[in-house]
Design a protein around this nucleic acid. Structure first.
Length: 101
DNA sequence: TGTTTGACGGACA
DNA sequence: CTGTCCGCCAAAC
């Protein structure tokens, strides 16, 4: 049974919305929590299509290496800094800031 | 209709 | 540590 893209998109939004302030989650983690293992790319694609004025905390999502792969990484880094999350050597420490669901 | 492209990730050298 | 390869799949060409 196939599932509509909007349905999975809704769940992805729902999960991202739950990431606590001051914490970060990985694309793969979001995919898993949304019930779609191995679909990290889908998460990235969905986030890339968010409207500019979205209220969703998309900046709290980084890749499995803790690196920012977002085209607007400057803005994402700024937003993370505002929450106390600093990048060391270009990456976020998942050990310190990783979201334990 | 076939191929390439990504806001990815894990395995491996 | 870096780089390569492969699985994944909707969207753009």
């Amino acid at each position: 049974m196939t599932e509509s893209l909007t349905a999975s998109q809704d769940r992805i939004w729902q999960i991202v919305h739950q990431i606590p302030v001051g914490k970060v989650a990985t694309y793969g983690q979001i995919a898993n929590l949304a019930g779609m293992p191995s679909h990290a790319r889908l998460v990235g694609r969905v986030l890339s299509r968010l409207p500019p004025d979205t209220r969703l905390p998309w900046h709290r999502v980084v890749n499995a290496q803790g690196k920012i792969t977002n085209p607007t990484r400057q803005r994402q880094q700024q937003r993370l800094a505002e929450e106390g999350i600093i990048l060391i050597h270009g990456r976020v420490s998942l050990r310190l800031y990783g979201w334990d669901y």
